[in-house]
Computed example of a mutant assay.
Amino acid sequence: MSLPENIREARLQVGLSQEQVAEALGVSRQAVSRWERGASRPSTANLVALATLFHRSVEQLTGRYASSPQVEEGSKRICDRCGRRAVFYGDPGRESAFCSEECRAAYGREMAGIQKHLKWFWAGVIAACALMVGGSFFKAVFPTNCTVGGGMALLGATLVLFPFCTPQTYAKLGLRRASILGRVLGCAVELYGLYILFWG
């Protein structure tokens, strides 16, 4: 396939609109539309950014080769999304590996969602920490169990709503398992925070 077809297909596979791609790259939606129609070509920097956003190699976008290299025999790589045995690498640097094209596409969509909501994750963590630490300065006004319990409950809710894990955790467990683990830990923190808030 040609570059315009590859860009459009890769965008649809990761579930992004032209507006979302344009926002991620800092270009106009019309520029993305022109790339997909073949009316213009993305610059080298934008081509690399597109490949990164779509979890593909530049070669795959330009159509220089169609398939990703297979995972080496004897390698214990797991799929970056589901945690099953990986069968091919998703990028030329061999940093990401997947068990199927469906997992690669879903991984791209899910990582785009995580990146989109990362600001809310950090806002929740900062607000929870500020509430817990701030409570120690205003003991006369607010009971400690209210500030600490409220802060922990807020932190737990943040972890449940926006489960964020480190890239190392994703590589070890896969995106789905790491997200589930993040949510389970978030529930535990939230329950402990509620216990402190009401009975501490």
Rank of each mutant, 00 (worst) to 15 (best):
C165L: 08
A140Q: 13
A130T: 13
A97Y: 03
F138R: 13
I126C: 10
T52V: 10
Q30Y: 11
K139D: 10
L185R: 05
V189F: 10
P69Q: 04
L3E: 04
C129D: 10
G93F: 11
S17R: 08
A106P: 01
F162T: 04
P167K: 04
G108D: 03
T147L: 07
A10D: 01
P92C: 06
G74V: 07
W120S: 12
E95Y: 13
P92I: 08
L194D: 06
S33F: 14
C82P: 03
A153L: 04
W120E: 09
A140D: 13
V125D: 08
K139I: 13
S75D: 12
F54W: 02
R8A: 10
P4G: 05
V125F: 09
P163L: 03
A178D: 05
L16E: 02
E23L: 15
M132L: 02
R183C: 10
V21P: 08
I196C: 09
F121H: 14
T158W: 06
E102N: 01
M152D: 03
W122C: 01
E36K: 05
Q18A: 13
Q18V: 05
Y89S: 00
G193T: 04
I180T: 14
V148H: 12
S2I: 12
E19S: 14
A178H: 00
M1N: 09
L3C: 07
S17F: 02
G26M: 07
F137A: 13
R77C: 01
L175A: 00
L154S: 06
M1T: 09
V21E: 04
L3T: 11
V27K: 06
G174F: 02
T158P: 09
A188P: 10
Q30V: 11
L50W: 05
V32F: 14
V148Q: 12
R94W: 04
I196A: 11
V27P: 01
K172Y: 09
A157H: 03
P42Y: 09
G200T: 05
K116M: 11
G90M: 02
S28L: 06
V71H: 01
N46W: 02
V48W: 07
G134M: 08
G150L: 10
I7M: 12
L175E: 00
L118S: 12
F198K: 04
K76W: 06
R84C: 13
V21G: 07
D91K: 00
W120L: 14
Q30T: 12
M132S: 07
V71P: 04
K76L: 15
L47I: 05
Q18C: 06
S40G: 06
G63A: 09
H55P: 00
G174K: 00
V160D: 02
S67A: 15
R85T: 14
M152W: 13
R85M: 12
L47E: 06
L175Q: 00
G108F: 02
G156R: 07
E95A: 11
Q30C: 03
S17G: 08
M1L: 11
V71N: 01
S136C: 11
A112Q: 06
T169D: 13
A24S: 15
S100L: 09
A171T: 11
A106I: 06
K116W: 12
M1V: 11
N46P: 10
N46E: 11
K139M: 14
I114D: 01
G151M: 07
A157Q: 07
